[in-house]
Design a binder for these strands. Structure first.
Length: 446
RNA sequence: CGGGGAGUAGCUCAGCCUGGCAGAGCACCGGCUUUGGGAGCCGGGGGCCGGAGGUUCGAAUCCUCUCUCCCCGACCA
């Protein structure tokens, strides 16, 4: 993509409304624009990141055996009357009346809808287990939306719902999601720690929030430092095997957000030199809620004895749009965003410092063609602008690798490779640059 | 929902107290110069001063109402 044609309205100054760093950078980099309080338009650059995150989430859900469907954003109120939540949910739920006077709502979550889908067609224990998910926009009419897309009213969420015959099955479903979440956040380049969370009316230990660690996170996090050195989950998880030992390992040490923090237990269970007090951002929440909805809404199956039993359910959410901001909170510097390779909007930024110069134009064209041919997404800054402006905006939008092409080096057949994260620069021949960038599948050399 | 603050050019903001032609920097358009970390000079375009009502010869400025946005708290993925 040529930057001269790309719709990427960057801002030199920070809009007055933005408080936290991710919000400021998302506005400045031209990723989002606010439409109303807590409601945003995703501009092309931001949408690219959102889609990349969404796809990683999707791949890991599929790998864990969940199946994707797509439920609507608008739901009939009657389903919520069945579960009893229509009155309980309060003003956070955006209620709508259609032209026929029917009560509708913009979904803040989808337990009722998925339970309805399930109960219509699943009647036998032989059809279990099932896990269904979708990635859809939700709306919660928060009293006070803030921090940009971090706490918007409209947000993109992945929510999975599991259906099992009994509690043991539900626990296996829970474990699959638990591990899939660790995998997902790992691939997004994030340090994540599962923390015990409120289990609601069911009780038990099947509820965890996943927090990513970032100095600027919104809640305090207290944890055993060994979490940071745990081996990554890695490729090739056997989701049909016994995941309990892995889950046990990841829940064995102390970790709590401020609302669940117990100072005495922290002191008791964690050696002093291992106590880590930092900040976190909640990006995922999984919990088992048993038959809460299946009983209320009559989602039953017949077991092997022909007896009708309500299915055991769990739900598992990931805040996809929030993750965009969370990743920035965890990965930025004074100059701008630093994207992990897995979610970067473009793999490579190519800077022509002097468009119109024969040497730089030629070198850039060769690199642009070569990198594109190798399947890399390249953002080519071919604008007639000063070098300083190009450096600044490329650093701001945070592509992992920059190829800087100025007349001085281009005349010698050379360009400069710059690693955005480390700032390390390397002058190499055009051919060497092409090789370095296309050899690694991630495109993050040097 | 309680408390505080702000709405003037695309962005950051001055002007308001003490009423009298609508402003600056950046951005944008044209020209010249410049070309390795958000350049310089010259010329230009752009505003229902959030909205409604009122006071006044005259309102961005004073008064009343209203809408929106932001921040702190309580609430939340």
């Amino acid at each position: 993509m040529r930057l001269s044609q790309f719709f990427m309205p960057t801002l030199r100054e920070t809009p007055a409304e933005a408080e936290i760093v991710s919000h400021r950078l998302m506005l400045r980099a031209g990723m989002v624009r606010q439409s109303a309080a807590g409601i945003y338009t995703w501009l092309p650059l931001g949408l690219r990141v959102l889609r990349k995150i969404e796809n990683i989430v999707r791949e890991e859900q599929n790998a864990a055996g969940a199946q994707e469907l797509l439920m609507p954003t608008i739901q009939p109120a009657d389903l919520w009357r069945e579960s009893g939540r229509y009155d309980d949910y309060g003003k956070e739920m955006l209620r709508i009346t259609d032209r026929h006077g029917r009560d509708m709502l913009y979904g803040p979550t989808n337990e009722e809808l998925i339970t309805d889908i399930f109960r219509r067609d699943v009647k036998s224990y032989r059809d279990l287990p099932k896990a269904l998910y979708h990635i859809q926009w939700k709306f919660r009419d928060e009293v006070r939306p803030r921090f940009g897309v971090m706490r918007g009213r409209e947000f993109l969420m992945k929510d999975t719902y599991s259906f099992d015959l009994d509690q043991e099955g539900a626990r296996r479903a829970y474990n699959r999601m638990f591990i899939a979440y660790l995998r997902t956040f790992e691939r997004l380049g994030l340090k994540t720690v599962p923390m015990a969370a409120d289990t609601g009316p069911i009780g038990g230990d099947l509820s965890h929030e996943f927090h990513i660690l970032a100095d600027t996170g919104e809640s305090e996090a207290f944890l055993h430092g060994d979490y940071l050195s745990f081996d990554p989950i890695g490729d090739g998880v056997d989701y049909d095997g016994d995941l309990q030992p892995l889950v046990d390992k990841w829940t064995s040490l102390y970790a709590a957000a401020d609302d669940k923090h117990d100072t005495a237990r922290f002191a008791d269970e964690v050696p002093e030199d291992k106590r880590l007090e930092t900040r976190g951002i909640e990006v995922g929440h999984i919990f088992y809620f048993g038959s809460k909805y299946s009983e209320a809404m009559g989602a039953t199956v017949q077991d092997a004895d022909g007896k009708s039993v309500p299915v055991q359910m769990g739900s598992y959410g990931i805040g996809v749009s929030r993750l965009v901001a969370a990743i920035i909170e965890a990965s930025h510097d004074d100059d701008g965003i630093i994207w992990p390779a897995s979610v970067t909007p473009f793999d490579v930024g190519l800077l022509n410092l002097k468009p119109g110069n024969e040497a730089t134009d030629g070198a850039c064209q060769k690199l642009y063609d070569g990198l594109n041919k190798a399947g890399l997404d390249v953002l080519y800054d071919d604008r007639k602008d000063r070098p300083g402006a190009k450096f600044a905006s490329m650093d701001l939008i945070g592509l992992p690798t920059q190829v800087i092409c100025g007349p001085r080096e281009a005349e010698q057949g050379r360009v400069e490779l710059k690693n955005r994260a480390t700032g390390v620069k390397d002058i190499v021949s055009i051919e060497a640059a092409l090789t370095a960038l296309t050899d690694t599948s991630t495109g993050t050399a040097p």
